[in-house]
């Protein structure tokens, strides 16, 4: 069965996005992306280290195989986010941006007001905007209305590996919005990713749980399989939960 993920005008076979931070080396990152068969990979923008200027992550990613999705990490308000998005576009990459505005360093929770402001500006400027948000259904709706191509609600704080603590609100987002919902941040193990997909999320983004695993390549594969399993379960229509037992074996012809 053909089951591609359509975002804006592009179609993807993989529903597992990978963040490229925290890997022990670019080669380990590349092996994980390949094992995951991921087609959307995030990167960040930072000042060049003048003592080591040419260490270059993009050399390890094939733009024919993956969409390189720059983020605006580090932005504390909409002005900084817009500036980073424009710098990313100036590099010659396609005008896609993962919009992140996280002014508070301890929990790195996204600022909803600044994110919405930045999204409006960037959509008008022709970007495909994928905002990282708290799991706020009304904010998700507002971002859809201003023209974002996905919403990316968090499961729990970035890098915390706590899994999906925002479950009920993610369910409401899935009910309310008509653009792809990508569960991002906090997914600590493959079962967290499977859960997101079983709920009906269009995709998940994983970074820390793969990059800091004992074996990142094998963990990338485990997440790939979990995402496929969760998606397959969702499409197969999961039977309802019941309060009491319902025998699986026939109740007639009993030897009594």
């Amino acid at each position: 069965m053909k089951d591609t993920l359509k975002i804006a005008d592009r179609e993807f076979n993989s529903r597992l996005f990978i963040g490229t931070g925290k890997f022990s080396s670019p080669a380990v990152m590349q092996a994980a992306v390949e094992a995951a068969e991921s087609e959307i990979v995030t990167v960040a923008l930072r000042r060049v280290d003048l003592d080591n200027p040419n260490d270059q992550i993009l050399e390890h990613l094939d733009p024919n195989k993956v969409l390189i999705l720059p983020n605006t990490s580090g932005a504390r308000d909409h002005t900084e986010a817009v500036r980073l998005a424009k710098l990313a576009a100036a590099s010659g990459l396609p005008k896609w941006i993962k919009l992140e505005v996280t002014p508070e360093p301890r929990f790195l929770l996204p600022d909803p007001v600044e994110t919405l402001k930045a999204a409006e500006i960037l959509v008008k400027d022709g970007f495909n905007v994928m905002p990282y948000i708290n799991a706020d259904p009304i904010l998700a709706k507002r971002l859809e209305e201003v023209g974002c191509v996905t919403v990316m609600p968090l499961g729990s704080p970035i890098g915390s590996n706590q899994g999906i603590k925002t479950l009920e609100n993610i369910k409401i987002i899935l009910d309310l919005v008509n653009i792809p919902v990508v569960v991002d941040a906090g997914l600590g193990k493959p079962s967290d990713a499977a859960l997101a997909m079983e709920l009906g999320a269009s995709a998940v983004l994983v970074n820390t749980a793969i990059a800091t695993a004992g074996n990142p390549t094998e963990m990338a594969k485990a997440f790939k399989l979990a995402v496929i399993a969760g998606r397959c379960a969702y499409l197969s229509k999961i039977p309802e939960t019941k309060d009491f037992a319902e025998a699986s074996s026939p109740l007639s012809g009993l030897l009594r």
Binding site: G21, M29, V48, L50, I57, S91, G159
Partner: peptide, 10 residues
């Protein structure tokens, strides 16, 4: 001048 490049990030 700000000279900027891509690095790993999530």
């Amino acid at each position: 001048l700000e000279i900027i490049k891509f690095v790993g990030g999530g």
